[in-house]
Write a protein that binds this DNA or RNA. Structure first.
Lengths: 227, 227
DNA sequence: TCGATATTTTCGTCATAGCTAAACTTTTCT
DNA sequence: AGAAAAGTTTAGCTATGACGAAAATATCGA
C-alpha cells in the first residue's frame, strides 16, 4: 500500500502538476490557482475547489491569493507518481519501442494503474535507472530526488559550450523536432551566434559538426550542463 | 478511437462481466441482476441502475425481471476489453515474469489505461497469440473469438483421458494450487477413480506418472479437451 | 391457487469532480 | 488614491456511480 492508493487519480494528478510547477528548472514562481488551472486544463473555480480540498486533508498549504505549497505528505505522493511516470516512459521506449515524443501521454494514463509490483519489475528490467527519457531525475522509492542545476540553452552566450542534459516533455511536436535535428540527450554543442532581442541562436553540434539556427522557444525547452 | 473510449471504466467492467457470465464454459443460464451484482461486488440496486442505463444507450437488451443480453455494440466493447485483458495477462507473464495467479488483478487495472498503440505493440511482442494465460481464447481486433467446447474435468468418468486446455482465472489461490500440483495447460491426465456424491477425483498425470486426489471445486474449474 | 419467499426495481441520498456566473480580493496602472 | 484588471472564491448546477429502504414482481411450495 502506497500513499498514492489513498487518494483519487484526480488528486494524484493535481499533486504531480503542483510539484512540477514548483520544481521545474528555472520556474521558481509560486504556484497560483490560475497557473495550476491552466496546466490542468480546468477552470480556475475547479482548481480553487480542489486546492481547498487538498489543504483540508493536509496535502498542501494554502494562503489565499498567495499560492500553494505541498506538505511533506503531499510531496511524497507527488514523487511516487512522478517516479512511476518516469519509469514507465523509459520502459515504453526501451522495451516497447515508443519514440520519446509518445511516451508522456501513455505514461500519464498508466501511472495510475500500475501496482508497486509492476513498478519494481520494470525498475529491475531497466537496471534501476536514475534519469528518465527526457533527462529528468527519477525519484527513488524513498522519495529522494536528485536536483540538477542545469542551464537553459537560451541563457548561454556566444562561444559557450555545453552538453544537452534534459528537455521539456511538454510538447511532443517539439520533441520530434529536436530528435530530427539531432538535439538529443548527450549532444555536445557550442553557441556560435546569438541574435539579440529574442532572436534565434546559431548552434554548432560539436560531434556532427553541423550548424543550425534554433528558435527561442526551443532554446528555452532545452537544458544543458556547462562544459 | 475504439468503442471502448466512448464509455466509462465502470461501463466497460459491466460489459466485460456480462459477456463472461453469458459465455463462460457450461454457464448457459441467463445473466440476472443478482448474479451480475454479486460478480461486480455491488448491491443489486446498483446493478439494476446500471442495467437500466446500459439498456438506454443500447449496449444491452433488458426485459425487466428476465435478465440481460448484450447487443452487438455492447458485445463489441466487451470483446475489446477482454482482448486487452488477455493480451496484458500474457505480456505480464512472458515479459515481466509474473506468475499466472498474479496477472488477472494487474490486467484488470491496466486494461482501462492502455492505448490501441500499446495493444498493438504487445500483440506483436507476443507474436499475435490466440490463447491467453489461462487457456482462454483471445478475441481478434475485429471482434472474432474462437469458441472452444471444452469439458469440465468434473464431468469426466473413470478411465477417460484428456488434456488440460483452460482453467478458471477467478481464484488466484486455486491457480497457485494447480501450479504446485503440476496441473497446468497442456498436461495430459487420466481419471483413475471418481468418488460418487461430490467426492474427490483420483487423477493420473500421464507424463509425470503421478497420482493425486483433487476436490470437486478444483475439478469444476479445470476444462479439458477429450483425448 | 394462494401466500411466502426471493428477486428486482424504484426512490431518495451521498460523494466526487467537473462547470459557469457572480461576488469578492488583490494588484497594477494612471 | 482610485479605478481597472487580474486573480480567487462562493454558490449553484451537472453527471457518474455507489448505497439502503421500500415497493413491485416473480416463483415456488403446499
Amino acid at each position: 500500500m502506497t500513499g498514492r492508493d489513498l487518494v483519487s487519480n484526480a488528486v494524484q494528478d493535481y499533486l504531480k502538476v503542483i510539484y512540477k510547477l514548483a520544481n521545474a528548472p528555472h520556474a521558481a514562481e509560486k504556484v497560483t490557482t490560475s497557473v495550476l488551472a491552466e496546466r490542468m486544463k480546468v477552470s480556475a473555480a475547479s482548481a480553487s475547489n480542489m486546492i481547498k480540498k487538498l489543504a483540508e486533508i493536509r496535502l498542501l498549504r494554502h494562503a489565499p491569493y498567495q499560492g500553494v505549497e505541498l506538505t511533506e505528505a503531499g510531496e511524497k505522493i507527488a514523487l511516487e507518481i512522478i517516479r512511476y511516470h518516469r519509469l514507465l516512459e523509459l520502459y515504453l521506449r526501451d522495451a516497447l519501442g515508443y519514440d520519446w515524443d509518445q511516451v508522456d501521454e501513455e505514461a500519464d494514463r498508466l501511472e495510475h494503474a500500475i501496482s508497486e509490483d509492476f513498478e519494481k519489475r520494470i525498475d529491475i528490467a531497466l537496471g534501476h535507472p536514475t534519469v528518465g527519457a527526457h533527462g529528468e531525475p527519477i525519484p527513488t522509492k524513498n522519495g529522494d530526488i536528485a536536483v540538477h542545476r542545469y542551464h537553459r540553452l537560451s541563457d548561454l552566450g556566444t562561444g559557450q559550450r555545453a552538453c544537452i542534459r534534459q528537455v521539456s516533455d511538454r510538447n511532443p511536436e517539439m520533441l520530434r523536432y529536436l530528435d530530427e535535428s539531432g538535439l538529443v540527450l548527450g549532444t555536445k554543442i557550442e553557441i556560435r551566434e546569438k541574435v539579440p532581442f529574442k532572436g534565434p541562436l546559431l548552434l554548432l553540434a560539436l560531434e556532427a559538426g553541423r550548424e543550425q539556427h534554433i528558435g527561442l522557444e526551443v532554446a528555452e525547452s532545452v537544458f544543458v550542463e556547462m562544459a
